[in-house]
Amino acid sequence: MITLQIILFSVFAIIAVVTSILVVTRKNPIISALFLVLNFAALAGIYLLLNAQFIAVVQVIVYAGAIMVLFLFVIMLLRPEHEKNFFEENPKMKWLALIVGVVVFFQLIYTIFFGKLSSSIHQNAEKSVEIGTIESIGRGLFTTYLIPFEAAGFLLLAAAIGALVLAKKHFD
């Protein structure tokens, strides 16, 4: 039986897989960055299928919005370099990396399908809708996880100051 959920999952999963390959293989970094935006959007769709509404919205705003704009700005600040096709330069190293990747991928597949953990888990739709709301996550952030939340805020402040210092023209 093919439900709407399965169709949506297939569409988003195919977009995510294809764009992640394109991000890694394209020569032009700007095209890579734009495919990465598409990848993040597809992932946001998958988060919605998992009933994680808050994370889906934050994914679009923070990742596809803020972080990728930063990336595109930096790419446009730098001089474009002449890049070669994927296997043109240093092909031995690249084949080796691909083989390592495939081996690790099959290892992960083996763990996922033959591990004892995942065989018995079934999604409880009502429960997962309940925990994905901004209310549930906000309650967690401001009660049990208040100190990590404050630490994350401090980390962002430190990162902003650090980025300013690093990107300054002259070090005093």
Binding site: V17, G101, L108
Partner: peptide, 8 residues
């Protein structure tokens, strides 16, 4: 799969 593409 996405993790492995990132690694590669």
């Amino acid at each position: 799969f996405m993790f492995i593409t990132g690694v590669v």
